[in-house]
Design a protein around this nucleic acid. Structure first.
Lengths: 330, 330
DNA sequence: CTGAAAGCGCTTACAG
DNA sequence: CTGAAAGCGCTTACAG
């Protein structure tokens, strides 16, 4: 099929060693032989076989990325940056959608291990789990692993997490400043990240609303579930005058639901989202949102991977500060 | 580092051939030796080296995917399905964000060629270009290549395209049925796909609005550009009473702009998007949108790749029909 | 400056 | 049922 170093060597009447030297730009080659070989290489569109190269060099130039569902924007944004950055340094990314079921994860780790990836990035707090920890210790015990927005303690694992707990606490503080009397919290599902947000909400209520009963709801992931959860919550607790949603997308659904119920935002009910995504800019009214700096988290992940691969030291666990972006829903 | 077939062979006091046979589940192995080896394999968490295997088997079990920007939802949805489907059949996906600049594309093709991918998927009509065609003929002349929503003629290239021309024509027909007098068309940038939509609009005007001057605008990609393009278009042509946007996201921005201008949707201006994405469900009012079946396009791409890899024949070019999903913006 | 040789980790006829 | 041997495409001491 494709030409090999051997074909080129035969045509140039030299050994494969010499061709290899030219391909890899080593300097101990006679200029004339070099240019002769270079010409042949170009003429036949020679491309080195990375598998063969990797075998002898013990490096695949591949990096694994695991994500539960590539369709979720928060993660896609991060992957975009990571792939760009790593790609610029000669690495290719092997990306898998693992789903949320922990039991399926081991086989992805095995597959990545077979492909001899040189580093692994885990996108999302959900991977902060025992099963993942064990899988990594069994199959990838000695390559750098970076978790975006999560962490667990293992010798080769590094974490970069968004300080969503204090961020959500800040959201409650904002609501209190604005004179809101009864904030609630609604999330789609329980993940380590969402639990942090919930904890932040709970802390906030304790601190700023010592006299009210906190209200937290878990809706599920579908648009309908979010819609009905918002509706029921508002009916059961008519005194709620502000809602923090665990993600902008949920908040966007909430906005629709509240409109359908005849509630005005922000006059009757204030709404805050999390992620500061494009949903926040496009919704009506535009959405006040907690920017959890997931983009920064990913940038940092990419840089840390690169640093670790070149043998540098990197903090085991880093915390990234969040920031509220105020728009018109509060 | 990792245990090899050789380590296992030594411990089991057999040859590497026998270990290989056990690993690959061949049946000509003595049950006792087999179970002894199996035990060792499990104990040491043996994982075969895919690069070595690939070298001798001439198969990398990797498939390349090229996309301009993984953050665009229409493509992400497709990639999700493709990765799932291909993964279920033992293939891993090497995904690259290539950007829109054609001149950078060749190096991605070279990189994929180095990694000896067994098939290539191009996500988006933008890759329907001479530069890409040449790169493929030079570096990947003999593996199956499938373009999602595009096509060019080369022996190993297959295309699956959404019939957006007729779809957009149908949108104009709908507007005409609803008694609209003056439809306009706004797109972000020129891609083969967007040009199809524009052509569909133009055909529609010729057929259903023989007396009006068609109005087509190219806005650019940023939210601000879309906003201002909509605003200017409405000011310059106050008689416009309906707009077809080349994507839901643009339409969502348009909805905001029209609201800011004091125009009611759909009373004053009807709006149609394309993609039938979550933006269409979440905007206020909900958006009537042309479903271009990009998901089906991707499903078909995945299936065709699998078929081609197993030696079956597949149509060189397929057309997928579109469908208007009516909501409340018309 | 150049080539013969060994080896990366695996598979598969071939012979026994 | 099992092993010695060759080979996939490459790189790199080593000797000249």
């Amino acid at each position: 099929m494709q030409v090999t170093i051997y074909d080129i060597a035969k045509m140039a009447n030299v050994s494969t060693s010499t061709v290899s030297r030219v391909v890899n730009n080593k300097d101990n080659v006679n200029p004339k032989t070099r240019s002769k070989i270079l010409k042949l290489l170009a003429e036949y569109n020679y491309v080195p076989n990375e598998a063969a190269r990797g075998l002898v060099m013990q490096s695949s130039h591949m990096i694994g990325i695991l994500i539960t569902d590539i369709r979720t924007t928060q993660h896609t944004d991060g992957i975009y940056y990571i792939e760009k950055e790593l790609g610029a340094h000669g690495y290719s990314c092997l990306i898998h959608n693992t789903g949320v079921d922990e039991n399926g994860w081991v086989s992805y780790i095995q597959s990545l291990s077979q492909h001899k990836i040189q580093a692994l990035i885990l996108m999302g707090s959900i991977y902060q789990s025992e099963i993942m920890k064990n899988a990594i210790q069994l199959y990838l015990p000695s390559i750098p692993v970076v978790i975006c927005n999560g962490y667990f303690n293992a010798p080769n694992v590094y974490g970069i997490v968004s300080d969503e707990l204090n961020g959500t606490l800040d959201c409650v503080a904002l609501l209190s400043e604005k004179g809101r009397k009864h904030p609630a919290f609604l999330m789609n599902q329980s993940t380590p990240s969402n639990e942090q947000k919930k904890a932040g909400y709970l802390n906030g209520v304790t601190r700023y609303y010592p006299d009210i009963e906190p209200i937290t709801v878990e809706s599920g992931n579908s648009i309908d579930q979010i819609h009905f959860a918002t509706e029921r919550m508002m009916k059961e607790h008519p005194d709620i005058d502000s809602i923090i949603y665990s993600e902008d997308m949920l908040a966007a659904v909430g906005l629709r639901t509240l409109a359908d119920m005849g509630k005005k935002v922000p006059e009757d009910v204030a709404v805050i989202g999390i992620n500061n995504s494009s949903y926040a800019q496009l919704s009506i009214p535009t959405l006040t949102s907690l920017d959890n700096m997931l983009y920064d988290v990913s940038m940092t992940a990419a840089r840390n991977i690169l640093a670790l691969l070149s043998g540098q030291r990197v903090s085991k666990k880093m915390l990234i500060c969040t920031e509220i972006v105020e728009r018109h829903s509060v």
